[in-house]
Design a protein around this nucleic acid. Structure first.
Lengths: 189, 189
DNA sequence: CCTTTTACAAACCGACTGTCGGTCTACGAA
DNA sequence: TTCGTAGACCGACAGTCGGTTTGTAAAAGG
């Protein structure tokens, strides 16, 4: 059981790559399974053998994308001097990554609508939100009672600014504004 | 040109009401035009006479919903003592309104995916965002260079907390957390 | 009174998603 | 080596849905 399993895995990955591109370029609704089949040269039956349906395919794409982003952020943060520094570096990295139309469209725009907010949130918990929350906690500037909520709000604010960059906003200005936003939030007096 | 115009307007409003309910209950994708036709007792031709398509129908629903929300917030804010007070009252009102599943699903979840982020943002500019930005400006606590960006981030943060309330989060806790979030943001020293 | 415009109806079209019976081939046991 | 099984893959088909087109009745307007 090796050649078969490998072939299957290769097929899944091929479909995943193509679907990722299409979902990012046209959005979920305007991407037809038909097109995925054509571009991958696969048959209907084969695709539905590997993925339960269009929604499941999207979820797989989303999962892979989030995992990639998570890995890059972890790498960027590695070796940060302080919790605050880690937070800043992580946020800046995330904003830059979200400038990628693939991430913008799939993760930030379509995901909540396609999966429903509940499932989307559960998935976020395992990736960006989870990381942000622990990083925020480590700074020790947010009361425990508000940690979860403030982490949510901060992530939403960051994602919004990432979308603004992706839309063509000036990189430097946005990052400076986010820095200031963060500075005000973390300040204890 | 009176009897006919009235009939048309009445039909449009009837469809709008039914469509609003369906979009809120099932989401955009899982709401079929077919269902709207059945529940309204209208024919295909009639619906497409009044609305250019499914997306246009959704946009009309969204527009009406946002207008309603805007009016309620304006009313709530009326007579606030200071810019800060107006900001706080407006935000609290918005959070409570967004607890309504209709608003949650239509305005916050589906709208960006259906209309595309650009058009969604343009529409928001005319409603919640526009109001928030001018209210924030009036407090005089945010440098002009960052006003637009901080207004965006703040709105995103507020919307997120509204979603958390809608999901079943504790009302009072969320509102307290938002108050604290806002307090930190507006603090100048 | 006659033309135009408007509201509405119904048949129809093309595209799409998901299903189902079936084929082929690698793999492991006899 | 043989043979049964399971997983990869195929393609036809059914059902649904969004949107179009053609047609009708009646109100509006000159």
């Amino acid at each position: 059981m090796n050649l078969k399993a490998e072939r299957g895995a290769a097929t899944r990955e091929r479909v995943l790559t193509i679907a990722t591109r299409l979902f990012a370029e046209r959005g979920y609704d305007d991407t037809s399974i038909e097109t995925v089949l054509q571009e991958s040269g696969l048959s209907r039956g084969a695709l539905y053998h590997h993925y339960a349906g269009k929604e499941a395919l999207f979820e797989a794409v989303l999962e892979a994308t989030e995992a990639g982003v998570g890995a890059k952020i972890v790498q960027a943060v590695r070796g940060a001097g302080s919790p605050e520094a880690a937070l800043r570096i992580g946020i800046r990295t995330w904003i830059r990554l979200a400038g990628d139309p693939v991430i913008k469209r799939i993760v930030l725009i379509d995901a909540p609508a396609v999966l429903g907010w509940e499932r989307w949130r559960a998935l976020e918990e395992r990736y960006s939100f989870g990381m942000l929350k622990s990083a925020l906690d480590a700074t020790g500037t947010v009361p425990a009672a508000y940690l979860d909520l403030h982490a949510h709000m901060l992530l939403a604010a960051i994602n919004e600014s990432a979308l603004l960059v992706a839309r063509g906003g000036d990189h430097a200005t946005v990052e400076a504004a986010v820095e200031e936003f963060l500075r005000r939030l973390l300040r204890t007096d």
